[in-house]
Simulated assay, not measured.
Amino acid sequence: RQAMAAVQATAGADTVRGQFLDLERDFGPMPDREALDTVSEYKSARYSVLAPMQLGLLAAGADAAAHEKELARYARLLGVSGQMRDDYLDLFADADTVGKPAGSDLREGRRSYAVCALLAATNGAERAVVESALTGPTCPPQTVERVQDIARRHSVDKQLLAEIRRGAEEAAAVAATWRGRWRDEAVEFFEQLPLWGALRAK
């Protein structure tokens, strides 16, 4: 029980840290890829993936600490891939499918994976359009559509999809190494989870 409580406490503290990192990402200097990945890890992957897996091992009587490195790698890869999928869907998905208008990250000034990729790919008039969309909730749908067109022109959508798929495949490969140690059906679930996440429509 003490070990399980420690996992929960650590997950809670990590999530708080992730929230602070999230604010720094959106209001500080333009984040690089490592900064974006760290936000994804601390804000979501550690409590939604790593902690539940650690708790499951502890409940089964296993030594979770003995698997810390590989579990942390799997969680980070899955968390990053999942967040990138969220960011991709926010900009490119059909509004009726996801249940909200496209471009909410833009309107909220969030430096998501998609937004950062867009800013890195553009300059001049195109970059000005993207930056104008980041100014607040009054950004009209027509501007979001222009941003989408610019993103597709620079293959930002394809770049994101490729990175999402690559991260999911790396996470699945980590899970595949668990065969022979844990039940086959459990390993199969953890192998398929990242790939499902990479293809989800909402």
Score class of each variant (00 low, 15 high):
R1C: 12
Q2G: 02
M4F: 00
A5P: 06
V7I: 13
V7P: 09
Q8F: 02
Q8I: 14
T10P: 00
G12S: 06
T15G: 01
G18S: 07
L23I: 14
L23Y: 10
E24T: 14
D26W: 08
F27R: 12
F27C: 07
M30H: 12
P31V: 04
E34W: 04
A35P: 07
V39S: 11
V39G: 12
S40M: 01
S40F: 03
E41Q: 14
K43F: 07
K43Q: 10
A45L: 00
R46N: 10
R46K: 15
R46L: 09
V49I: 15
L50Y: 02
A51S: 10
M53V: 05
M53N: 04
Q54D: 07
Q54Y: 02
L57I: 05
L58P: 06
A59M: 13
A59V: 02
G61D: 03
D63R: 04
A66D: 13
E68N: 08
E68Q: 13
E68L: 10
E70V: 14
L71N: 08
L71D: 10
A72Q: 06
R73F: 03
Y74L: 09
A75I: 02
L78W: 01
L78P: 05
G79C: 05
G82W: 05
G82F: 15
G82T: 03
Q83T: 09
M84T: 04
Y88K: 08
L89T: 03
D90P: 05
D90T: 06
L91G: 10
L91M: 13
D94P: 08
A95P: 09
D96E: 15
T97L: 14
V98M: 12
K100W: 02
A102Y: 01
S104C: 06
R107M: 04
R107V: 04
Y113H: 15
Y113K: 08
Y113E: 05
A117D: 11
A117M: 13
A117V: 00
L119N: 05
A120H: 09
G124F: 06
A125W: 01
E126A: 08
E126H: 12
E126N: 11
V130F: 04
S132E: 15
S132F: 00
T135I: 01
T135H: 04
C139W: 00
P140E: 14
P141T: 05
P141A: 11
P141L: 03
Q142D: 15
T143A: 13
V144G: 03
R146Q: 15
V147E: 11
D149L: 13
I150C: 10
R152S: 04
R152I: 03
R152K: 15
S155M: 09
S155F: 10
V156F: 11
K158N: 09
Q159K: 10
L161T: 07
A162Y: 00
A162C: 06
A162S: 10
G167A: 01
G167S: 09
G167C: 07
A168C: 07
E170K: 14
E170M: 11
A172C: 07
A173P: 07
V174I: 14
V174M: 03
V174H: 07
A175Y: 09
A176T: 02
T177Q: 12
G180T: 12
W182H: 14
W182I: 01
R183Q: 13
R183M: 02
E185P: 00
E185A: 06
E188L: 11
F189I: 00
E191H: 01
E191Q: 15
E191K: 08
P194E: 10
P194Q: 08
P194I: 13
W196Q: 08
A198C: 07
L199Y: 00
R200D: 01
